[in-house]
Design a protein around this nucleic acid. Sequence first.
DNA 1: GATGAATGAGGTTTCATTCAT
DNA 2: TATGAATGAAACCTCATTCAT
Lengths: 228, 228, 228, 228
Amino acid sequence: MAREPAALAATDGRVPGRRGRATRQRLLDATADLLEGTPWRSIKVIDIARRAGTSPATFYQYFENVEQAILVLAEELTEGAGELAALVEGNWSPEAAWDTAQAVVQQFMDYWEANRAVFRVVELATEEGDLRFRGLRVRALNAVTEALAEVVSGTPSARSVTSSRTRIRHESPAGTDPMAVAATLVSMLAHVAAHRYGFEFWGIRTHSLVESQARLLLWAVTGTTPPS
Amino acid sequence: MAREPAALAATDGRVPGRRGRATRQRLLDATADLLEGTPWRSIKVIDIARRAGTSPATFYQYFENVEQAILVLAEELTEGAGELAALVEGNWSPEAAWDTAQAVVQQFMDYWEANRAVFRVVELATEEGDLRFRGLRVRALNAVTEALAEVVSGTPSARSVTSSRTRIRHESPAGTDPMAVAATLVSMLAHVAAHRYGFEFWGIRTHSLVESQARLLLWAVTGTTPPS
Amino acid sequence: MAREPAALAATDGRVPGRRGRATRQRLLDATADLLEGTPWRSIKVIDIARRAGTSPATFYQYFENVEQAILVLAEELTEGAGELAALVEGNWSPEAAWDTAQAVVQQFMDYWEANRAVFRVVELATEEGDLRFRGLRVRALNAVTEALAEVVSGTPSARSVTSSRTRIRHESPAGTDPMAVAATLVSMLAHVAAHRYGFEFWGIRTHSLVESQARLLLWAVTGTTPPS
Amino acid sequence: MAREPAALAATDGRVPGRRGRATRQRLLDATADLLEGTPWRSIKVIDIARRAGTSPATFYQYFENVEQAILVLAEELTEGAGELAALVEGNWSPEAAWDTAQAVVQQFMDYWEANRAVFRVVELATEEGDLRFRGLRVRALNAVTEALAEVVSGTPSARSVTSSRTRIRHESPAGTDPMAVAATLVSMLAHVAAHRYGFEFWGIRTHSLVESQARLLLWAVTGTTPPS
DNA sequence: GATGAATGAGGTTTCATTCAT
DNA sequence: TATGAATGAAACCTCATTCAT
């Protein structure tokens, strides 16, 4: 793990020192800030530089263009994903399943919320066919999807630390192909999270959204409804 | 009904004649074409004009800017939505429910597919906070969502032609708030439809996606699984 | 005087009929209106046409460009000038002189006021070296200037109907060259009239401006001050 | 006094260094040059840039638009005005008055001549209602007008260095309101100066114009005619 | 390391102007 | 006569990007 991440190298190949890294970070922060309120394609190098208190020329010492800077930000998405996957692989025993389902939904929404701006870009760029972003998206959601597929199919994940050896293979009530079921569920989670504010605007409370998603999730995994 | 739709008026306020309308349409078609393969923000007036076989100056006789042209395209989304809502309000009797569920999912995907490019813009602009697009999005998905909410709650829609008088009010296994359940389901449908190719790229077949979604939908509405 | 003024002919050489003349006039009126509030160079054919309730194409049937239309308006300046010149050539006898001087100043300001917008263009274009406008300006102010020069020098004008044969040639206290004196006085009148509102803004009342000018004029012509 | 004049700041807010200031000055010079022979509204950024040996993009680093560049040029008008005011406040004793009057007229014309192009714009823009230019105009002519008003009324100016304590308050033969008299005189001076070439074209020699104006000025201030 | 300065490049807009109807 | 429509042409203005300091 001693290798310098490639992304940290400056444009001219040199590895920046302390001061340089600080500047780089300020540029990244500025980019993230702008991302909150500006359509990605409208973010200008000048804006980033100004907000970071530097000049455009400096920006180009660390990034080739705005897209690349955003890509760096997006890399961080992957980090939060592992935690989420672990939760998915948790306890689906009859007594705990309902709590687990709810926790998964809630945490997914939190995860998304914390990275809303970046996710927005990733979603968009992916749909527009950008392969680098698609790759990122896969990596960010892959862990969760696969964990879910395993849980749905009853097959313990090779990577799963907490999985029980005795789990029995079964078919989900939600479909034959576990990956399809998992992908469908993740789609649901992602879309609801993304449009959450739209729904509130529409009069639907977050609490109800969590409930609905958790019930569907619970049913897809265990075929049960929550204990009343 | 004789009034000209405002959207048809040219930039200078005059209502175009036959020739003008034809040009306008060519510009819209060109815009739609470009939308397929180009990130919205990257579409230039020049490109549209060139593809439509006219000059930028002509474009500006009919639209104020690219966004407005796209907005006009997006208006058409609303049209297809009614048909879909009708299907949702269809036959959910035990014998027919599974077929209905599958048909709804399939048609939703087709609907999305037919308007993929426009939907992409609408989704994005909505998330970026553009109110005009958000309004459109609501209008396009509203009919389906509400129909679904009614079906889920067992309440016959006032507008529903096929609804039975004897339908009994019940609670969906997927949640207490019918609108939340419906919104969750529509989210699932929309997101899966939007990312369909991504999933295929991932090795999941469309058939499986339809099945998973239809099962979740069926269960949310009737609390049953398909007959084997 | 039966010849059609060239300016009345349409662009294509035809002499317009009743309906055409009406349109032409509407265009001229619209131009005059716009001139009030818009810098000349900023007046667009489209604006004129819209305000006249026609299309640009129609404008070009009557005028080659905006400048030419304004030129037509400016022609009318000459009309008011004769009246003013007559007043200048009026009664400068000791008893009447002060009244005459005041009347001249007052009427000059009124004349300017009635044609402020057009004068503004004429002044500007003249200074910018436009020969057609300079010609117009000369014609508009020529009558007054020459009348003044005659009065100042005591020489009766050949054209003057009211001048006395017995007027004695003398030198103005304001200078040896009568035309220079007259030009200086007209300059004063023109500039004060043009900047009248600026002066009011500055706290100087129109009444005082009239008085000062009339006194200078009186003195230049008669070498006297008003009776107290 | 160490603060940078705001006008010197570049468009992006930074204060330019040596090189930048040189470029800025070249742009101003080019603007001034063009102003000589081109109607203000017709001056294009492209032209200025070309003449200054730079690109339009560079122009926009220093000025927001052509108008603003001209405004900067016009600021310099104010500088020459002080000298003129000092002259006006000079020696109006019986022996010196005629020389003073002639000197004032002559210097006013020189002052105008040296800034003819800029004055043309200022006059026009003022008449068109542009407040920034009106403000400039006031500042440029204010010193002279006020000095003149003081001299005319016999009141020594507080600022006047050469003024005699014993000067007696009197009323000008040219009117009761000293400011009105002064404004009238300055109007005369300004207008004659502005139209000087027009007058020459008309056969009036500059020498005669100076004489007429000086006589009117002398009379308005002292009530006398020049010694023969 | 940082950044003043400069600028090529390109899309946006606006009009004047022209026809064919 | 009048005018829908179309468009060439030109200026505007904004950026990304690059150097030399």
